[in-house]
Design a protein around this nucleic acid. Structure first.
Lengths: 347, 347
DNA sequence: GGATATTATGGTAACGGTAACATAACCATT
DNA sequence: AATGGTTATGTTACCGTTACCATAATATCC
C-alpha cells in the first residue's frame, strides 16, 4: 500500500503538498497539482482515513442507533438520515438495539471507540443514562422519535398525540363509541402519546374511557394479534380498533381474519404508520402517517448543524405533523352500515 | 479525552501494560489488572479505535454494499450479515448503490479509505471492474446474490434457475401453457437465471417459448405494473404470470386490480421472494422463497473465514436452495376452475 | 545448580496522515 | 523603498495506539 510519502517522492514534492492537493486546501500551482495527481493515479494511492482522522480529530461519520431496521418505518428513517449525511460528505454507521438497554450500551461504547462525530438515536427507556454519558464524552446527540425526561437534548419526532387525536376523532364522527386501543409499551413515549391522543378525543366528546378497551403490549405482530383477541372477546364487542403501530395493525388484521371478523363491516380498524407504498398492493388501512423519511433527514441535518456550529443555541425540539390518510378499513358511518352487518350475520 | 497514557500514569504502569489489560493479551498480574481497571473507570477512558487500527492494521470492520436496503429482501440479508459479523466482534458499514456504477465506485473508494477488512457486495453489472480493483488493493471480497464473469471471486447466492424451474413446473402441472414472465434487467444474473429456469421448464414439456410473453424491465413496482399491462393486452391472454421478484409481483397485482383481472381466477400469479411474514396480513402469493437471512450470514462467515485464513483455498461458490411455497395466487388446475371463471364473469 | 520455560513489565519506534508554524517569491499599495 | 497581501511550498512534531524487542524475576526440569 503506497502512502502519501511515496506519492510525494514520485511527484518530487513534500507530503504536505500532496495532502493539500488531495484535500484541495491552500494554494497549489497548476503544475504541481497535475504532477501529484499523476503520481496518485500511477501508484493507485488511496488515502488512509484512520490516519487522517486520528490527526484531525474528525471522522466525518455519524451513527444511527435504532430499534429494528427490519421495520419499514425505520428503514425509511434510515434512508432519510443516510441521504442527508451523504450529501454533507458524512458516512453513517447503523445499529439495532431491539429495545434492549444492554445492546444499546454495547453499541454506544463501540461507536465512541470509533470516534464518530455525532449520534442519532432512538433511546431505549425514558430517562436514558446514555444521554449523560454521551454528553460527558462530548458527543453531540439528536434523539429520534421519542420524548425523554431528565436530561435535555435535541429531539426530532412526530406528533403522535395529534395523530391519534385525529384518528379517534374520525372514528367518533363515524358514530363509534366503543373504541379499543392496542398500544405499545407504556415505557415508550410514542405509545403513551398515542394513548393520550385517544383519551383527549374521547374526553372532548364526553365518551367515558373503559379500561378494558385499553391494551398495552409490544410493537410486534404477535402482540398485536394477542391484544386484538383480548378486546374481541369482550361483550359488548368494540366497534372499532385503534392499532398503535403498523405491526400491531397487521397482527390485529390476522387475528380478525382468524375470528372471521370482517374489516370494516364488523369492526373498523385504524392504525399508525402505513407500510411504504411499494410494499402494499392496495392501500386498505386508514392510518396516521408519520413523515419517516423527513424525520431521518431533519434529524441528520440538525446534528450536522450542531457539528459545524450553525445550529441555534439551546436544545431544539422538532415535532413533525402526522397526516391522516383515510382508506377502506375505517369504513362508513356506523348508522349507515347497520344493514350490512345485519345481512351478513343473517347468512 | 483521557488517553492510554493518562490511565497508565494514574495506575502507575506503562501504557503498554494498560493496552494489555484492555485487550487481554499477554500476562498480567491480578494486582496490576485491578489497578488499571480502576483507573479506566475513574477516568471514563475509551480506547481510540483509529489509533489502534492504524497501528495494528486491522479495523475489524466489514462493509456490505447492496442495491437498496429498502427492499425487505435486502433488509433481511443485511440483518443476517450483521448478526454474523457482530458475533465475531466485527462491525459493519452499509451502502446502497441503487444499481448505479457510479455510486458503487464512490462507496468502494470510501470503504477502501476507511481501511475496512473485507467487503460483501452485490455487484452492479456482470463483469465488475471493481473486483479487480479490490484485488489489487488486497481487500477480500465475497460477491452476494449474483454470478460474475471475468474475474473469479467467492460467491454466495441462491439457486434462481432452480427456483424458477420449480415454479414454472407447478404452473405447467396445473395446466397452464401460456405463461408470461416479467423479468428484471438482462444485465443482472439473477434475472437471467430465472428466465433460464422458465425456458428449461417449458422446453422439457415441449411448450414453445413465445417472445411476446417475455418482458424485461426493472426490479421495481412501476416496471412490474407496466410489464403486466403489456402482457395482459395480448390476445390470447396469458393464463399465468411469473414475476421476477417481489416488487414486480406487487406491480403486477396492482395492474391486475386496475384491469379487474382476478388472481388466480382469471390469471394465476407466481413470484420470487416473498415479503417477510410480519409485513403480510395473509400469505397470498405463491413464491420461490430465497433464504435471505442465511445468504447474508453465510456470506459474512465466508468472508470472516477468509480473513483469519480458515477458509478453504480456491474460490468458493455457495449456492443455497430456493423453496417453493404454494399459496392462493397460483390457483387450482386450469381445467377445474373453468366453472368459477364462467360464473364470475356471468355476474 | 545450570538450562529452559513461564510470568510480568517496560522502552522505543512506527502506523500515515495533517496542524502549526515558517519561509519566500511575487505583486500592488502608499 | 518600505509595507502588506497573495500565492506556493516546506519542516517538524504530533494524533493514540501497539509491534517489536528487551529485561528480569520466578518456576520447572533433568
Amino acid at each position: 500500500m503506497p502512502t502519501i510519502r511515496d506519492v510525494a517522492k514520485l511527484a518530487g514534492v513534500s507530503p504536505i503538498t500532496v495532502s493539500r492537493v488531495i484535500n484541495n486546501t491552500s494554494y497549489i500551482s497548476e503544475g504541481t497539482k497535475k504532477r501529484v495527481e499523476a503520481a496518485v493515479r500511477q501508484l493507485g494511492y488511496v488515502p488512509n482515513t484512520l490516519a487522517r482522522s486520528l490527526r484531525s480529530r474528525r471522522t466525518s461519520t455519524l451513527a444511527l442507533v435504532l430499534t429494528d431496521i427490519t421495520n419499514p418505518f425505520w428503514t425509511t428513517v434510515a434512508r432519510g438520515a443516510e441521504d442527508a449525511a451523504s450529501k454533507a460528505g458524512f458516512s453513517m454507521m447503523l445499529g439495532n438495539t431491539d429495545e434492549s438497554e444492554e445492546k444499546q450500551a454495547r453499541y454506544m461504547k463501540a461507536l465512541l471507540e470509533k470516534q464518530i462525530d455525532g449520534i442519532l438515536f432512538v433511546p431505549v427507556g425514558k430517562t436514558p443514562a446514555v444521554i449523560r454519558m454521551l454528553k460527558r464524552q462530548d458527543v453531540p446527540v439528536v434523539v429520534l422519535d421519542r420524548r425523554i425526561t431528565g436530561d435535555k437534548a435535541d429531539v426530532v419526532r412526530c406528533d403522535s398525540e395529534g395523530g391519534a387525536y385525529k384518528l379517534i376523532g374520525l372514528l367518533l364522527s363515524l358514530g363509534h363509541r366503543r373504541i379499543a386501543v392496542l398500544s405499545g409499551p407504556q415505557s415508550i413515549s410514542t405509545a403513551e402519546d398515542r394513548v393520550q391522543g385517544y383519551r383527549r378525543a374521547l374526553a372532548e366528546q364526553g365518551v367515558t374511557v373503559q379500561p378494558g378497551l385499553m391494551q398495552y403490549g409490544k410493537f410486534t405482530v404477535e402482540s398485536g394479534a394477542e391484544m386484538a383477541h383480548q378486546v374481541l372477546k369482550l361483550s359488548p364487542r368494540p366497534t372499532a380498533i385503534f392499532a398503535g403501530n403498523n405491526f400491531i395493525a397487521i397482527g390485529a388484521l390476522k387475528a380478525m381474519q382468524e375470528l372471521h371478523v370482517r374489516v370494516p363491516e364488523d369492526v373498523a380498524l385504524v392504525g399508525f404508520d402505513d407500510l411504504p407504498a411499494n410494499l402494499t398492493i392496495d392501500p386498505f388501512l386508514t392510518v396516521a402517517r408519520q413523515p419517516a423519511y423527513e424525520m431521518g433527514s431533519r434529524a441528520a441535518e440538525l446534528l450536522l448543524a450542531r457539528l459545524d456550529g450553525t445550529a441555534p443555541r439551546g436544545y431544539q425540539e422538532v415535532v413533525l405533523p402526522t397526516e391522516v390518510e383515510i382508506h377502506h378499513s375505517s369504513g362508513s358511518p356506523v348508522s349507515a352500515r347497520g344493514d350490512f352487518t345485519a345481512k351478513a350475520s343473517a347468512r
